[in-house]
């Protein structure tokens, strides 16, 4: 149990939404990674909601990148929502959006 992060999962048919609350970093990534690993083959779309994300470091970014690669392998789509300006700039700088765009294009 980690007090710094809470990941809530909501399933609605083929859509799985993960609400990330708190800090996604080196010390808290396990609950998020666990949810990614548990995504089953019936899911066609994973939405990650960052509205209540207060901080993300490079390890947290690594978890997002892994989710995108997992999505490409298991053939589901990833949508990121509720991103504030600061996190948006970070995703833009490291190339998260380009990876999503490129891998989901290949998948389609």
């Amino acid at each position: 149990m980690n007090d710094l992060i809470r990941v809530e999962k909501q399933l609605q048919g083929e859509i799985c939404t993960l609400y990330v609350n708190g800090v996604l970093d080196y010390s808290t990534m396990d609950p998020f990674d666990k949810e990614i690993r548990s995504i089953d083959c019936n899911i066609r779309q994973v939405v990650v909601n960052f509205e209540n994300l207060s901080f993300i470091d490079s390890t947290g970014l690594g978890s997002i990148v892994n989710l995108v690669h997992e999505a490409s392998d298991k053939q589901f789509n990833v949508f990121l929502e509720g991103i504030n300006e600061e996190i948006n700039d970070l995703f833009e700088t490291v190339g998260v959006y380009k990876i999503i765009e490129s891998l989901q294009e290949v998948g389609e």
Binding site: V65, T93, V94, G95, K98, I99, S102
Partner: peptide, 9 residues
């Protein structure tokens, strides 16, 4: 100059 991280694609 924008580019994807090493190991990204």
């Amino acid at each position: 100059a924008k580019g994807v991280m090493l190991g990204g694609l």
